[in-house]
Simulated assay, not measured.
Amino acid sequence: MSATRNLFDLDGRTALITGGSRGLGLQMAEALGDYGARLVISARKSEELEKAQAHLQARGIAVDWVAADGGRDESIAALADAAMDKLGHVDILVNNAGASWGAPAEDYPTEAWDKVFNLNMRGLFLLTQQIAKRSMIPRQRGRIINIASIAGLRGNPPGAMKTIAYNTSKGAVVNFTRTLAGEWGPYGITVNALAPGFFPTKMSQGLIASVGEDTLKAFAPLQRFGDEEDLKGATLLFASEAGKHITGQILAVDGGVSAV
């Protein structure tokens, strides 16, 4: 294998992926595992995690799972404990778990706002803090990949679902990423974010149904949705030695939607 190909090699690396049982999280778990990383995936539902584990193991990937609710402080602490126990240390943290809730801003329920922020931002921060203090900072190396969204870069078009808390929380993830990159760079930790556009997932199905598949595709210069492979290359870039000099960046993987 050439030296350039070796830049993406993750043999001997470990990774924790939240929301890793399906959708974009499972796609990224495939990418990291296929390139050699040993994984722990987490999500709320054990049955979905068991199914994802079997799927990944069939690809030859070493993977354990931990059921955890990223919106609850005590569950986050237990997840950090379990990840450290199973992996020994965490080289790569992918903060993918997230939630949305649709309602007009003028009538948006406070409890819905709190639920979205507790998972999308508070939980993300607490887990990142735990993993950094217990693994990345002592070892003076680490890769943190936060999953933002193009919803955190712009507002919703007229007629779209009304997701004020989701958009705001993803905007917070964007600046969290930039700020943390500056603070933890001296520890050898890179912090970057992916901002996916329209991917057919369980979370996006309401938006796709509301606006229409053809209409949403028309927003993208590439005239398509993201597919089951489209986050893999960017994930590997941020996770591997190929991205060791990249930090504080937000990479939109959206078919060009955010560029026009």
Rank of each mutant, 00 (worst) to 15 (best):
I144E: 08
R141H: 14
K232N: 09
L236P: 03
A67G: 09
A54L: 15
R178F: 00
R139D: 07
L87E: 07
G60W: 03
S75G: 05
V173T: 15
D107A: 11
L207M: 13
F238A: 09
A193F: 01
N95W: 01
G123V: 05
F117L: 14
E74F: 03
I41R: 10
L24Q: 13
G19P: 00
A68F: 05
A242Q: 12
A239F: 02
I131H: 07
P157S: 11
G23Q: 08
Y166M: 09
L207T: 13
A37E: 06
K45M: 10
G70Y: 01
G12S: 11
G25D: 02
L124V: 08
R154M: 15
N175G: 00
G142K: 06
L7H: 13
M161F: 14
V211E: 09
S149D: 13
L56K: 15
D230G: 08
V66P: 09
T247L: 10
V63L: 03
T215H: 08
N167G: 14
Q223L: 06
I144S: 07
L194I: 14
N96I: 02
T235K: 12
P196N: 04
N96K: 00
I17D: 04
A181G: 05
H245A: 15
L39D: 01
G159K: 07
G60V: 00
L32W: 05
A193E: 03
F8E: 02
G233W: 10
A68E: 06
V90I: 12
Q129K: 14
L79M: 00
F117R: 09
A103E: 09
A58E: 13
F117C: 11
M203A: 09
W113I: 01
R59I: 01
L32H: 07
Q57A: 06
